[in-house]
Design a protein around this nucleic acid. Structure first.
Length: 613
DNA sequence: CCCGTTGCGG
């Protein structure tokens, strides 16, 4: 005996505790020795209980303290803000202020984190101005927290203003700025922050490199991504599960599955998110069979599919029209998980893409809470099915909620109009989008509008619209214009569009087919020959087109010239009958199609689907 | 108190 610990000596001891029994042991010791009455040792005790996740005991210690110092308040506020109890953190903060305790940098940091957790911008700004009044405006910790708050609330420009005013920027606030840019879809600026840091000679860690990997993923910049990966290896920056997962995601998203699997297979430890990154990569790139196989493999490794991998599975199903499998995924979700907004929207999307608009709508109506993306998906569903009127009705209902339509909403709405030939409605709502909702039209919106006008033969107006664009028109816009010119025999504008389209060196057979067909329609045979020559030179992939249809749970694939189907004869007879019936009611077939003589190859992908079922 | 930043998905 005689070794009774002095209250202050308990601090390092408590901080090194990672397990519940040892914290409780020291707690007991503190009670026995009377150290519990010292505020100096109670603050670390609170922090220790909080760090092992026992917020309740931490609060008990806090409540029973005879006198509290600033550290005890901070420990409790930070504990709540880290344990996702932002309202408790904020109520403690208010109580502390009203009791006249002077907050410090840590207090503000904790309170601001709580505000960010609640997305409570108003409260956050109050805390921020109080912090400024207390002289913490230039504090990197406080400023980083404000930065994070603004970024989380989508106020990226306000975040930039805070960032620019920080006198001595460190790694963490730069990382926060980078993730802020990423979350608001501004990867270019995220990379710019990184470049600035590089020029200032800053040392990087895994967290900031992960932000950069994400930037590369959303930019589709494989070169930069590879150099970032290489940098981490050369510098020996430790890569944890998160960093490795973001690398898998980047490679898989960009379709570099060899690289993605290489990183994935070398991971010492994987979790559901790592699997999800690979699965969604396959699904997003149209490798539905691979995606679904990976889900099965994931299960065999002991990971039950959670929300994200189910969403990827649904995406895979909708890409190839696997209604039956999609339904079973839906059933799995209903049985195993609570169907939330994300899964619900994915199921809506699956039903509508698999042809079942009524199921999609039924599910939409059943959803307990619908966010903007759910509405957007349902409006898009009507668009895909050519139901422009219904899309508009739903849009009008959306405007009566407290949700604000965004650029995606309008992209879906305008596309619905263009698929239904509702030209006047399209023009009207395009103007409303700009004037009333202050949404600057993007490439997608212009492409819809050009398609809408050009499809109905108003190619002159479409080309005027293109001329009015502030940004450089992209491929989709010119393709829409060209398609209109092709259908309505508008030679001079079409020629301009065709030239523009070829300038993009598109990697898409369909686009070349359109250009070639346009020249053929215009009797410009040198144009047809020129297009074919470009295709040969650039080695444009000849992806064989095929149709898939699911009948009673069985998947049937049809390629050109493919006679392997066991009902081939019957199908051809029916097709011929339909063809003659259509002609009888006035259908005039287009005979200038170019694609018929392209070589076809059986896709191994497609065999996968068939094998799967 | 020793703080702030972090991976897949609609």
């Amino acid at each position: 005996m005689g070794l009774l610990p002095w209250p202050n000596r308990l601090r390092p001891l408590l901080l090194s505790c990672k397990h519940k029994p040892s914290v409780a042991q020291i707690h007991a010791l503190m009670i026995v020795t009377g150290a519990i009455t010292h505020a100096n040792s109670n603050a670390p005790l609170i922090a220790s209980y909080a760090s092992i996740g026992d917020t309740e005991t931490a609060r008990k210690v806090f409540d029973e303290m005879p006198q509290r110092n600033i550290h005890a308040w901070n420990a409790m506020i930070i504990a709540y803000s880290r344990q996702h109890c932002p309202s408790e953190a904020l109520s403690l903060y208010s109580r502390m202020i009203s009791e006249g305790v002077r907050p410090d940098s840590s207090t503000f940091t904790g309170a601001l984190k709580a505000c960010a957790g609640m997305l409570d911008l108003k409260m956050g700004e109050e805390v921020w101005s109080k912090a400024a009044r207390c002289g913490y405006e230039g504090d990197v910790f406080v400023a980083s927290s404000v930065l994070n708050l603004y970024a989380k609330c989508g106020k990226t420009d306000e975040a930039v203003a805070v960032f620019d005013k920080i006198p001595r920027r460190d790694l963490v606030c730069c990382t926060t700025m980078i993730t802020g840019f990423l979350q608001s879809g501004r990867p270019v600026e995220a990379v710019e922050v990184y470049r600035r840091m590089q020029n200032e000679g800053m040392e990087f860690d895994g967290v900031v490199m992960m932000g950069l990997v994400q930037a590369c993923a959303s930019l589709g910049d494989l070169r930069l991504g590879l150099s970032v990966h290489g940098y981490m290896i050369r510098r020996g920056i430790p890569m944890d599960v998160m960093v490795q997962t973001s690398l898998v995601d980047m490679y898989a998203k960009s379709g570099h599955f060899e690289l993605a699997s290489c990183v994935f297979n070398r991971m010492p430890y994987r979790n559901a998110v790592s699997w999800g990154a690979l699965i969604s990569g396959f699904a997003q790139n149209g490798f539905a069979g691979h995606a679904l196989e990976m889900v099965v493999e994931m299960q065999s490794c002991g990971f039950e599919p959670e929300s994200a991998s189910l969403v990827s599975s649904l995406l895979a199903c909708s890409q190839v029209g696997l209604l039956k499998l999609g339904k079973s995924v839906h059933g799995y979700i209903l049985k195993r998980l609570e169907i939330g907004q994300v899964c619900g929207t994915a199921v809506i999307d699956m039903y509508s893409k698999c042809g079942s608009l009524s199921y999609a709508r039924a599910l939409f109506d059943q959803m307990v809470s619908r966010d903007l993306i759910s509405w957007n998906a349902m409006i898009a569903s009507y668009g895909i099915h050519g139901c422009g009127e219904e899309a508009l009705t739903l849009f009008l209902q959306l405007t009566e909620t407290n949700l604000k339509p965004d650029h995606s909403t309008f992209a879906s709405l305008l596309s619905a109009f263009s698929h239904s030939g509702l030209v006047e409605e399209g023009l009207h709502w395009f103007d409303v989008m700009v004037a009333k909702y202050k949404i600057p039209p993007g490439e997608k919106h212009y492409a819809c509008m050009v398609d809408l006008l050009a499809r109905s033969g108003r190619v002159e107006e479409a080309s005027e619209l293109i001329a009015s664009m502030n940004t450089e028109p992209g491929l989709a816009v010119w393709v829409a214009l060209l398609a209109g010119c092709h259908n309505h025999r508008k030679l001079s504008i079409g020629e301009i569009a065709a030239k523009k389209v070829l300038e993009f060196n598109p990697d898409d057979l369909g686009v070349y087919a359109l250009v070639s067909n346009f020249y053929a329609m215009a009797r410009r045979w040198e144009g047809v020959a020129g297009t074919k020559k470009i295709m040969k030179q650039t080695g444009t992939k000849k992806v064989p087109g095929y149709s898939l249809v699911e009948v009673n749970g069985e998947l049937h694939a049809f390629l050109m010239e493919d006679k392997s189907h066991h009902h081939h004869e019957d199908i051809m007879l029916l097709l011929n009958k339909l063809y003659h019936d259509m002609r009888a009611i006035g259908y005039v077939p287009k005979s200038e199609a170019l694609l018929h003589n392209f070589e076809e190859a059986h896709s191994s992908e497609q065999r996968k689907f068939i094998k799967l079922l």
